[in-house]
Amino acid sequence: MSIPADLKYTKSHEWVRLEADGNVTVGITHHAQELLGDMVFVENPTVGRQLSAGEECAVVESVKAASDVYAPIAGEVVSANGDLEGAPESINQDPYAAWMFKVKPAQASDLDALMDAGAYTAHVESEAH
């Protein structure tokens, strides 16, 4: 299981990367895609949508089931990865490269509430029991 040290994480298995421009990139973790299995469909939020933290804002569907993706922090959607529509399997191949959407945070300090790699590793392990 891969959990890069330079990313932040949520309990609902999204990863978050702070970019140089202050926006954050969001995807689902290696662990999440492994639980779901082969991805067959992705629905991203529309650009411009205002998200509140913890809101259902996207859907990934695997061969097994549909799963909601939650907004890790509040903010505005500034970009969505259109490539996923034709290639949902890229989430399985490299979940940290296959980003889903980018958010301009309402407050930069909200990021501090997210888990670091160590806390997320412990969270995944706790869910396995």
């Binding site: 299995g37 082969d38 061969v63 399985n92």
Partner: peptide
């Protein structure tokens, strides 16, 4: 077994 790696 549900799959051995990739169902597809």
């Amino acid at each position: 077994p549900i799959h051995y790696g990739s169902q597809i």
